[in-house]
Computed example of a mutant assay.
Amino acid sequence: MHRVIVAGGATLVRDAYAHIIDGSPTFTLQAQTPTFAEALTFLATTPSDILLIEAHELAGVPPVATQQSLRQAAARTRVVLLGNPPTDLALLVGAGVTGILGLHLELDHFFTALDLVSRGGMVISPAPTHATSAPLSPPALASLSNRERQVLALVPTQPNNDAIAQLLGLSPLTVKTHINRIRHKLGASSRAHLVAIAYESRLVTPGLTPHAPTGQ
C-alpha cells in the first residue's frame, strides 16, 4: 500500500480526494492537512510515499521560498501537484516535483498517474498553462538527431538511464552519452531542465503512458 498525504485546498475537495484515495486497494490515506506547511511538519517525523498538494497552495509565495519548501518535501517523499500551478514548469521540476495532475482526470487515470509516480516516473497531465521564462525555440530542437529526440522524449517519464536503455535497446552508457550531448546542444543545466524542455517543446505530449518514439 502506498501512503498518501493530501494537503491544501478547499475542505470539501480535500475530503473528496481523501475518501477516493482511502477506498483504493493500492493507496491509503495517511493524513490530510489544511496547508502545505502542516504537511511538511508531518513529513518531518513520519515517512510517506506521496504528498498530493493542491496547486493553489503555492500561489503568492515567492519562487525561492516555493523551491525551498518543495525540495524539503521531495527529500522525504514524491511530490504531486493537483491543479494548474501558479509557477513555471522548470522551477517545479527542478525542485523535485514528479507529478502535476489536472483537476478533470478520470478516476482510473488519476490512480494510473499516482502509480507511475510511486514507481519513479513523472506525470504531467495536462501540461501546465503557465508560460515558462525561457521557452525552447524550434531551431534548437532541430539540432538534435532522431536518436537524441527519442532519448529526450523518454527522459520525463523514465526513472533512470537503465529504463531508457531497455526501451530503446541501448546500453545505459550509450544513453548517458546521448543525454550529455543533448544537454550540450540545448544548453540544459540539468536533467530536470531537459524534462522541462521536453514538455515545453511539445516533444512529449502530456499524458499518462510513456512510449518509445519510433525511428532511428
Rank of each mutant, 00 (worst) to 15 (best):
L43M: 15
V4G: 07
I5F: 06
L194I: 14
L167Q: 15
L154S: 13
T98M: 03
D115A: 12
G9R: 04
A16P: 00
L105Y: 05
M122L: 13
D162P: 05
H2N: 10
A165I: 08
D162H: 14
A10F: 01
R147C: 09
L51E: 06
I21N: 11
D88Y: 11
R202Y: 02
L141M: 14
A37K: 14
Q166K: 15
A140I: 10
D49N: 15
E54C: 02
E57T: 01
Q216A: 15
Q166T: 15
L52W: 02
G23H: 08
P139L: 05
R14A: 10
V117Y: 04
V204T: 11
T77R: 02
S143R: 15
R181Y: 10
T77V: 10
S201N: 09
H184I: 10
P210W: 03
N84S: 12
V79Y: 03
H211T: 05
A73K: 07
P172Q: 08
V155T: 09
A142E: 13
P63S: 02
V123F: 10
R181P: 08
K176Y: 04
E106P: 03
A153V: 07
A7I: 12
V13R: 13
E38L: 14
T157V: 03
P86E: 08
P128L: 06
T35F: 03
R149Q: 14
T33S: 05
H19T: 12
L152E: 07
G207C: 07
Q72H: 10
Q30N: 12
A59H: 09
L51G: 08
T209W: 09
D88L: 03
L168V: 12
A39M: 02
H184S: 14
P47R: 12
V204M: 10
N180V: 09
H184Q: 15
E38H: 06
N146L: 14
L58N: 01
G9P: 04
V97K: 09
G121A: 07
V151R: 00
S48P: 03
P62I: 09
S24Y: 11
G96P: 07
L114Y: 01
T209E: 09
L40Q: 11
V64L: 07
A55D: 00
